[in-house]
């Protein structure tokens, strides 16, 4: 790394951890001085950006919401719910970012526990798709699980869909890919294909007697989901 590259890095991404940059800095007093200056600049920028939040703002937001919907019931479950949230956080802790496939598999584990029998309404499906700039173009058919999730460090739509006797996991992930990506472990087999919203993953269990044509399934669901501009 030379001085110019070092300075470009520090001006665009001063928090990035780079051994190369550290090495250069330790041997170059000018760049070392430059790095201190940028750190000072960023401290000042942070102070300039940190505008005071109006006093009681969170309370105001909560009040506004409660005025818009029904009167609030007493919160007797509050502490229990905190405990439950903690438990959930522990479960979610397992969703540390790995590769895209690993991430998808960890969501599969989660879904096994949280998929409840019953149909998800189209309205619910649309709410989930909204998070990834998607919408339903034609019906997805039977949906039994729908969640806004975090996959590969970005918002994703996670569904379980049923088609006849087959059951698939369907994910819409904004990550853009330019080629199909098959993946597999001992329990699941999946395929990621490019889609208007980024990419679409379809996953099926490997134990199933019937080996579905994942590409055909992915394309069919892909056609039912369109991208929206806002």
């Amino acid at each position: 790394m030379n001085c110019l590259e070092f300075r470009q890095l520090k001006l665009s991404d001063p928090y990035c951890i780079s051994e190369e940059a550290d090495l250069h800095q330790s041997g170059c007093s000018n760049c070392s001085k430059f790095e201190r200056e940028i750190r000072g600049l960023d401290d000042s920028i942070r102070s300039a950006l940190t505008v005071a939040v109006p006093e009681g703002f969170a309370a105001k937001v909560l009040l506004n919401q409660s005025l818009q919907s029904h009167p609030r019931r007493p919160k007797r479950w509050y502490w229990l719910s905190l405990a439950a949230s903690f438990l959930l956080a522990v479960i979610l802790y397992q969703f540390l970012p790995g590769t895209l496939e690993e991430d998808i598999f960890s969501h599969m584990e989660y879904e096994q526990v949280h998929d409840l029998p019953g149909d998800i309404s189209e309205e619910e499906v649309r709410k989930v798709l909204y998070a990834v700039r998607g919408d339903v173009d034609s019906t997805l058919g039977k949906v039994t699980f729908a969640s806004i999730c975090f996959v590969n460090n970005q918002l994703a739509a996670h569904f379980v869909v049923e088609d006849g006797d087959e059951r698939y996991t369907l994910m819409i992930i904004p990550k853009e890919i330019d080629h199909q990506l098959p993946f597999q472990n001992d329990r699941w087999r999946g395929l990621i294909i490019p889609h208007a919203t980024g990419s679409l993953a379809i996953i099926a269990g490997v134990q199933s007697e019937f080996t579905p044509d994942l590409l055909r399934v992915a394309e069919r669901y892909g056609d039912s989901i369109k991208r929206i501009t806002i």
Binding site: L88, A89, L92, H114, E124, S147, I148, F150
Partner: peptide, 9 residues
């Protein structure tokens, strides 16, 4: 809110 099941998101 009911659509958000993954609190990390």
């Amino acid at each position: 809110l009911d659509s958000l099941k993954d609190e990390a998101a």
